[in-house]
Design a protein around this nucleic acid. Sequence first.
DNA 1: AAAAAAT
Length: 516
Amino acid sequence: MSFDSLGLSEPLVRAVHELGYTTPTPIQTQAIPAVLNGGDLLAGAQTGTGKTAGFTLPILQRLNTMPAVATASGKRAVRALILTPTRELAAQVEESVRAYGKYLKLKSTVMFGGVGINPQIGALRSGVDIVVATPGRLLDHMQQKTIDLSHLEILVLDEADRMLDMGFIHDIKRVLAKLPPKRQNLLFSATFSDEIKTLADNLLDSPALIEVARRNTTAETVAQKIHPVDRDKKRELLTHLIKQHNWFQVLVFTRTKHGANRLAEQLTKDGISALAIHGNKSQSARTRALAEFKDGTLQVLVATDIAARGIDIDQLPHVVNYDLPNVPEDYVHRIGRTGRAGATGEAISLVCVDELQLLKDIEKLIKRPVPQEVIAGFEPDPTAKPEPILRRGQGGGGGGGNRQPRQSQGAPKRDGASSAKPAQRSGQRPANGQQQPKPQGAKPAGNGGQPRRDGQRHDGQPRAAAHEGSAAQHAPRKPHGAKPQGSNPGALLGGAKPRNDAPRGGQPTRSGQRGR
DNA sequence: AAAAAAT
């Protein structure tokens, strides 16, 4: 199977090939012809399955093929709208659109909150074909009448379940109400709650159905490991691990925003360059942290679950769960940040007694125990009692009325400096972790803290296509270090009994085409 | 229970 046999035109295939992809993933194989068909689509797919290319490629082709439309002012009209739950994801999707559309004349832009609205208005005025947006800012534009969607032909709701979880349903309905009724709708969701089904029923007209087996697990290329540890020794252990192995690009997840801030500060004190990323950070701080982490300037990125989905970093070697996530599914999303596109990765979880129940839930979900390894010097106190803080909500699927109206959280915190890095860096990084982290503050002041919204990379390397990445399929590799090495594996923390391996994910389970 | 998203 190849991209041109899916019906994509030469300029798209050329862009895809130049980005290093030759073989479509299962979801691409199914979604691309379905979208080219012009009908609606309901797709069950998570990030990391090649989903983004699955809709951006055929959308580009359709817009390129269909006769261009002009607005009253004579500029190109917005014909495709892609909504995503987070700003970072919106930026990434638009990068993909740009990368894949490199040889086409189509124009795209991204818009979300937390940054100035005027540049966005300017971009819209100059005329764009494709808009990628988060719901809030899009509504803002609609109310201010700075966006004209009267020529819209294609609508995509990406990570629709996440958007509903985040309380976007009302915003989405308000957007939908103002769109031209005759259009192609694509809905992507990792899960299918009753809410999603209702949304799909209302939105989609006899959609094609595509489902790719859930990645409930954990690519084979990710080696997972638990380090049992006392709750108050976690930070020390993390520092120890990073320094001992000289890890150079570590994504660390915490449960709370406050926890992320604290940990980043402490790591910095320990001589490790670290920044936190979460929803209370200013957009410029978020953008900067992500950019520095991606280009290797930053050794550690401490994140809340804002980064659990979607965020894609090439060849990210290490993910650490400093806290286990409250929702088992998020474990899968988190560790899915590593081992992407066939590369090997390592997912380490620091687990204290409080988190045993969460661990059990996770092992049940992924249908396998995670090997445990106690690190010498960090043996957990066997008499420690769990503190009954953590409870997991969310029953089987239908239930949780998790509605939360948006509420203002006050001004985002400005974390100090207005430094953004000047463009630099060759794009190479040492292959073996020799890179020394720069101390904080050593960077020259940059462009006044303007966030990068332009989707360009510092190093100018094409990479957007790596999102949802692995267009190409790679031979599965054995995870390295899958066996616990070192001292008493399995000590102290009762995990699930070893079972035979879980079934591999990644195969399509169901597909339907239909004409319209 | 936490997180995210418009000002």
